[in-house]
Nucleic acid binder design. Structure first.
Lengths: 244, 244
DNA sequence: GGCGAGATCTTTGTATACAGAAACCCTGTT
DNA sequence: AACAGGGTTTCTGTATACAAAGATCTCGCC
C-alpha cells in the first residue's frame, strides 16, 4: 500500500531540500542493501516518480546511475529491476574485493594517524557491543563503516573508489545468499586483528588479514550451486513493484 | 566549423540504425582517447544533440554514463567537460591497473586455448609491424586490442569489467601526459614476453610481466609535478565546444 | 585603465506530451 | 484443460517547453 520511504521524503522536503537523483540513488541503494527491495523487484519509472514526488526525468537519471553501479538492470523497453547477481558473480565479486581491499589495507597500514585509528577502534568496539545485544542492523552498520572508512582514506583514491563499489556489491550478495539459519555474519576476531595490523604498520599482515576475513565471510554464504537458490523465474515472474 | 563525426553519423543513419545514447558514448569515448576532444573541452547538450541529430534527452543519458566512466565531469548547472585527470590520479590509475591486470594475467595464464593464443600472437605481430611502419594509430589499436582481449576473457568477469574501465582511463592519461618528444610508447619485448608466459602458464611470471610493462609505460610519461603540465585555468578558461 | 553592477544570453534542470514496444488479459478454439 | 490470437493496458524512448542558474558582455564609475 504505502511506500517504504514516506518519512525520509517528508523529512527531506521539510528540510527545504528538493529531491534530486542523488537522493533517489541513495534511498534505493540502501533499500536494496537491507533487502527491503529484494532482487527482481520491478522499479517502474512513474511509480518511483510518484513516490518521490518528481517526474520521470529525475528517476531516469537515478536509474541510469544505479545501473552503472550494478544495483539494477536496465534492458531496452523493459522495466528496471533490482539485480540478482548469480552465484558465479558472487564468487567473482568476493575475489575482486579480496584483491582490492587487501591492497588498500596494505597501503593503509602504518599510515593512519591516531584520530583515524581511534575512530576505527570505536567502531570495532561498537560492532562487538551491537552483536552482544543482538542488534544485527546496528552491527552491520558499524562493520560497513569500518570498511568504508578504509576505502575513503585509501592513499590511492582510484582504488578507494573501486573498493567503495565492491563493498556495496558484496553487501548486496551477502544479504542475498546468507545461509538461511544464520543470524549474523559476525567474525569475532577479524576486525580487532585488522586494527592491530593497521596500527603496527605490518602491510602484509593487514593484507592477509583482510584476505582471510573476506574468505571467511564468503564461506559463511550458501553458494551451493546445485540448486540455484535464486530462482530467476520465480523472482522475475511476479508483479510486485515498489509499492505493495 | 563542422563536426568530427559527420561520416560516422551518416553511415549509422544510412544503415538504418537510429542514434542511441550508446552510439554517442562510444564516439565521445573514442574521440577523447584519440585526443580529438582534448581535456577541458566543453560538451554542451544542445550542441551534441544537433551534431548527432537527437534531442537533449539522449545526450543527457550519454553524458551521465560518460561521467560514470570518468570520461567527462558533470557539475550541477554547468556544462559537461572532458575530464583532465591530475598527475596524482594518473599515478593512482596506473597503480590500480597494475594490481588488477596483474591478477587477470595470473588467472589467465595457462587457461587460454590455442585459438585465443593465436589471436594474441597475431595482434602482437601486427603491433610490431605497425610500429616498424611508423603507423602509430594502428600500433595503439593493436596494443589496446591485446589488453582488451585479456579483460574480455578474464575468468573473473568482475575483474574483467574493472580492467576494461582501467584500460580506458590509462589510455586517456597516456594521451594526455605523453612526453612531448616521444613518438611512440612502444616497448619491444613486453607483449611477446607476456604471450609466452600466458602460453606456458606461469602465473607469477605473467603477473610480473604485466606489472613491469605498466610500470615502464608509466615511466615513459611526463609526470613531473613541479610544473603542472595540465594548466586547468588555461584549459577551462577557453570557450571551445565540440564544434570548431 | 581597472573594476563592479546590471542586462543579456547561454545552458542546464525538470516536467510533460506523444509514439511505440512489451506485457497482460480475455476470449475462442481445439 | 491447454493454447493461440487480438485488443487493452502499462511502461519506456524521445522530443519539447518553460524556469532557473550560470556565464558573458556592456556600461558607468573610480
Amino acid at each position: 500500500m504505502s511506500s517504504i520511504w514516506q518519512e525520509e521524503i517528508a523529512a527531506e522536503t521539510r528540510a527545504g531540500g528538493r529531491i534530486s537523483d542523488r537522493f533517489i540513488v541513495d534511498k534505493v541503494r540502501k533499500a536494496v542493501l537491507t533487502q527491503r527491495l529484494p532482487p527482481g523487484t520491478r522499479l517502474p519509472e512513474v511509480a518511483l516518480g510518484d513516490i518521490f514526488g518528481v517526474s520521470r526525468s529525475v528517476v531516469r537519471k537515478a536509474l541510469t546511475r544505479l545501473a552503472a553501479d550494478y544495483v539494477v538492470t536496465q534492458q531496452p523497453n523493459q522495466v528496471a529491476r533490482v539485480r540478482a547477481p548469480s552465484i558465479e558473480e558472487t564468487r567473482e565479486t568476493f575475489a575482486a574485493r579480496r584483491l582490492v581491499e587487501g591492497e588498500v589495507a596494505a597501503l593503509l597500514a602504518g599510515r593512519l594517524d591516531e584520530t583515524q585509528l581511534a575512530t576505527i577502534a570505536s567502531l570495532v568496539e561498537r560492532e562487538a557491543e551491537a552483536h552482544a545485544c543482538g542488534d544485527e542492523p546496528a552491527r552491520i552498520e558499524h562493520s560497513l563503516a569500518i570498511h568504508h572508512l578504509m576505502a575513503e582514506h585509501s592513499p590511492n583514491r582510484v582504488l578507494g573508489a573501486m573498493l567503495t563499489d565492491l563493498i556495496l556489491r558484496t553487501s548486496i550478495v551477502i544479504a542475498l545468499y546468507k545461509r538461511a539459519g544464520l543470524a549474523s555474519c559476525y567474525l569475532t576476531e577479524d576486525h580487532p586483528a585488522l586494527l592491530a595490523h593497521l596500527r603496527t604498520g605490518d602491510s602484509e599482515a593487514a593484507r592477509r588479514c583482510i584476505h582471510d576475513h573476506l574468505q571467511a565471510l564468503e564461506n559463511l554464504l550458501d553458494l551451493s550451486s546445485r540448486e540455484t537458490r535464486i530462482d530467476l523465474m520465480a523472482i522475475l515472474g511476479q508483479r510486485e513493484g515498489v509499492t505493495e
